[in-house]
C-alpha cells in the first residue's frame, strides 16, 4: 500500500484511475445488461436508445450536434443507419482522435454494448441500413470466390489495390487495407459508404454478391505465399527496390571480392 501511495501524485495517476473507474463501471454495466438482453423487445429497445443518446451526448455531440444534425466539422447522422454507427464506432474510427484528413482504424473506444446502444439511438432518428445479422454473413456457404474476384476487380481494386492492400486517394487520403477486416465490417462499409468510399447498394451489388466479395477477400488474405515473400503485394515498386538493394547489392559485393587480391 505504501508503494502505491507513493505514486499517488504521479501525473499518470489521474488518467489511470479514470480508466480503472471506467473499466469497473463498464464491467458492472455489461454484467447488468447481460440480464437486460434477454428481457423482451420494445422496452429493451427504448432503454438502449436512451442509453445510446446519453453516450452520444457525451461523446459525439460536440462535433455531430446535440440532435445528430451535423456541424461544421462533422456530417449529419440522421438516416445513416445502425450499420454506419456499428462500422465507424466498432472499428474505432469514431470518435476521431484528431481532425486529420481521414479517420483511421484503431482500438474502439466503446465496447460492443455501448456501440449497439449508439447504433440503436442513431437508427431511431431516421431509417437507414441496419447491422447485418450473423446469419446473413455466412460467406463460406453463400459466396463464390471467383465471382467475388470479378466483382472485386470491377468495384474495389481501383482503390484498395488488386490484393486488397489499400492505396492512395487524393490529398493524402487513402483506401485502407482490407486484410484482417471482419466480414461484418466489410459488409457494413459496402452498404453505408464510410468516408471517401461510395455506397454499393443491394440492388447494384446484391447481398449474395457482397458475400462473394467477402469470400474472395478472405481467400486473398488466407492465401499462403506461393512464390516467396510477397513484399506487400503492392506491385513492381518493391520489386524494383529489391532488385537494386538485394540483387545488385549482392552482385556488386561479390564483384568487389572477386577483383581484390587474396592476401
Amino acid at each position: 500500500m505504501k508503494r502505491l501511495s507513493r505514486y499517488r501524485r504521479h501525473k499518470a495517476a489521474g488518467p489511470l484511475l479514470l480508466i480503472f473507474a471506467l473499466l469497473a463501471i463498464g464491467t458492472t454495466f455489461s454484467v447488468a445488461s447481460a440480464t437486460v438482453k434477454s428481457a423482451p423487445t420494445a422496452f429493451a429497445r427504448t432503454a438502449a436508445i436512451e442509453e445510446g443518446k446519453q453516450i452520444f451526448l457525451k461523446g459525439c455531440s460536440s462535433c455531430h450536434g446535440l440532435n445528430a444534425q451535423g456541424g461544421a466539422v462533422a456530417p449529419s447522422l440522421i438516416g445513416v443507419g445502425a450499420a454506419s454507427v456499428d462500422f465507424q464506432v466498432g472499428t474505432g474510427r469514431m470518435p476521431m482522435a484528431d481532425m486529420s484528413t481521414q479517420a483511421m482504424r484503431k482500438k474502439p473506444v466503446y465496447d460492443a454494448q455501448e456501440t449497439a446502444a449508439l447504433a440503436a439511438y442513431v437508427a431511431s432518428l431516421a431509417p437507414g441500413p441496419a447491422v447485418p445479422e450473423d446469419s446473413a454473413l455466412n460467406y463460406q456457404r453463400d459466396g463464390s470466390t471467383a465471382e467475388g474476384g470479378e466483382l472485386f476487380r470491377n468495384n474495389c481494386a481501383m482503390c484498395h489495390n488488386f490484393a486488397g492492400q489499400g492505396g492512395a486517394l487524393t490529398e493524402g487520403k487513402y483506401a485502407p487495407t482490407l486484410m484482417g477486416v471482419e466480414p461484418k465490417y466489410i459488409y457494413e462499409a459496402l452498404i453505408t459508404g464510410p468516408q471517401s468510399m461510395p455506397v454499393f447498394s443491394d440492388k447494384t451489388i446484391t447481398p449474395a454478391e457482397k458475400l462473394s466479395l467477402i469470400k474472395w477477400i478472405k481467400s486473398a488474405e488466407a492465401e499462403p505465399n506461393l512464390g516467396g515473400a510477397t513484399m506487400g503485394r503492392i506491385g513492381p515498386v518493391t520489386e524494383g527496390l529489391l532488385v537494386w538493394i538485394l540483387g545488385m547489392g549482392l552482385l556488386i559485393g561479390i564483384a568487389v571480392w572477386l577483383t581484390t587480391r587474396a592476401r
Partner: peptide, 14 residues
C-alpha cells in the same frame, strides 16, 4: 438493368 431508385445518394455502380 437498374432502376433509378436502386441507387442511393453516394452510390456508384459500373
Amino acid at each position: 438493368p437498374i432502376l433509378a431508385s436502386d441507387l442511393e445518394v453516394g452510390a456508384v455502380v459500373q
